[in-house]
Design a protein around this nucleic acid. Structure first.
Lengths: 189, 189
DNA sequence: TGCTAGAAATATCTGGCAGATACAAGGAGG
DNA sequence: CCTCCTTGTATCTGCCAGATATTTCTAGCA
């Protein structure tokens, strides 16, 4: 029973697009899957080693001395499908922002507002990134059979960024008034 | 320079509410912070050990033989504030659902729809959980100074669940037609 | 031609952390 | 008294991120 490694899935998936060196693989994962996945060198090299021993990838001479280009084999493709079909292994949640806000009374209201504003800013920046990525890629690869699936992942980022912005705004309003008086009312005409 | 441990923050935070045994601490973290944080026994015990050696928690005799109740000390509270003030250490993303959808052409359209429907279902269930938790807790603790901060974390869950549901619906529609004909066009008048 | 800076590429090690597992002891119910 | 469930304590394996060291190639510059 082959050990179920999350890294194997990403590595085989990357190589299923095109053969690459380990270095390029990491770059690709960072740039293309970066919004929802990440791998480190410390994992990629041993994983490629294992996959080679199991016959799921083949090593070829790379463009440089002592560099290797890896390509996926037939059994590697089968293994990829097997891994993709496996039940999703949910990573246990670890949200440092929400943990700090939960202990907000200890941390202090002002610092909480600062955290919320920072979260809002990065979410806004991410949102803009997703949107430009979407228009750019849809023009570029809108006809490939992969595009509908890729777009789904981008739209996940868009939805989540919007949700984060709305939540941060709402929370800033809720934590807005210094303790005591309930809310700064709009002046009524 | 004390090693920056995420677990220390959660443990000290929990003990800042009230003294507890290690077991109860884990229960509390699972039940109260469970929506955005998790700790395992394997981390809690050695962390309590370390904190005791550093004088940040004090061990007392528990209700049973060989059981200990831990309470936070003055230096522990200071340490907690120090940890809460530290910059947020972002966990690298690892979303198994989006990874599978990205390789959707390999996985197959039908299986992707299945994954999306499952994600939608759990998000809906979570949403209902958050909403009932909000009404229940707001009646119960609505007056405590902790409540505004706790509510912020619950509303984060609500916003994210709603975003997930909307995204899943949108994506199911986008992947709706069986492969072949590109898109069910609106009939032109 | 040679020098240097930086990028590309390969590799290893440390330590946080999850999950599984084992085990002790008391309470509840039969 | 027996057995199961809950409470409670503790350890071990293995995944994985991040930092770091090292070598090779490329480009710019003199």
């Amino acid at each position: 029973m082959a050990r179920s490694s999350q890294t194997q899935m990403a590595v085989l998936g990357g190589l299923s697009i095109e053969p690459m060196t380990a270095y390029a693989l990491r770059e690709a994962i960072r740039d293309v899957l970066g919004h929802f996945w990440s791998e480190s060198f410390g994992q990629i090299y041993p994983t490629l080693q294992t996959l080679e021993e199991e016959g799921h990838v083949r090593r070829r001479e790379g463009p440089r001395a002592r560099s290797s280009v890896f390509e996926i084999t037939g059994s590697g493709t089968a293994r990829l499908i097997e891994l993709l079909t496996e039940p999703i292994r949910g990573t246990p949640p670890r949200d440092g922002l929400l943990l700090r806000l939960f202990f907000g009374r200890t941390l202090g209201r002002e610092r909480c507002r600062g955290l919320l504003e920072a979260a809002r800013d990065t979410a806004l920046k991410n949102l803009q990134g997703y949107e430009s990525l979407q228009t750019q890629l849809s023009a570029q690869e809108g006809d490939t059979p992969d595009w509908p699936f890729i777009e789904v992942t981008i739209r996940a980022g868009i939805h989540h960024s919007r949700a984060t912005i709305a939540w941060a705004d709402e929370s800033l309003a809720a934590l807005g008034d210094p303790a005591g008086h309930p809310e700064p009312e709009e002046p009524q005409p």
